[in-house]
Amino acid sequence: MSKSCDSWSTVSLVSLAGASLSVLCPPTVEAAQYMSVEQAEKAAFPEADRFDARVLRLTPEQLRSLDAVASVRQRGEVRQIDAWAGNKLLGTLYVDDVLGKVEWVTYAVAVGAEGAVRSLEILEYRETHGYEVRTPSWRKQFAGRRLETPFHFGEDIKNISGATLSCSHLTAGVQRLLALHAQLAKSR
């Protein structure tokens, strides 16, 4: 051990929480919207003059067939928005939600008329939604210390540093949407 080790200081996280009014953030987290659906439509298909939107309610059979492609918690309702320039179909924007371990993501995948992905944008990102309480005894220490106001991700605290959250469930969601797109293209 080098001498400089002596000057490391130790504090308890509970005392840090007590010091600050923003305290430890409760697990109810509000959504941070990054893009609206309209913005995503325009960004993906700037040359479009018309968008036709509908909601696809996936049947249990469809969901099962998509599970075979990639397994991820998906809502079962996908917004499908066709982009038109005059009578020419430019492509389709799919808006969907996937649930990860600690975050819930609304995303938009734009597929061109030729079938290639044009863009992938995250529209909304919520952390810790539906997240289980991992260590109840530890959390009990903070009972009564938490602020009741919900934590606005990216607003109250803009920078959260922590171990990396994997985006693999989003990748799975995109794979499912592309499989769905292929199924729908056949039936069109």
Binding site: L16, S20, L24, C25, V29, Y131, R139, I160, S161
Partner: peptide, 14 residues
């Protein structure tokens, strides 16, 4: 700046 708590990812410490 906040960090996640190591035992509970739903908690962040400012």
């Amino acid at each position: 700046l906040a960090i996640r708590h190591p035992a509970d990812a739903s908690l962040s410490v400012p």
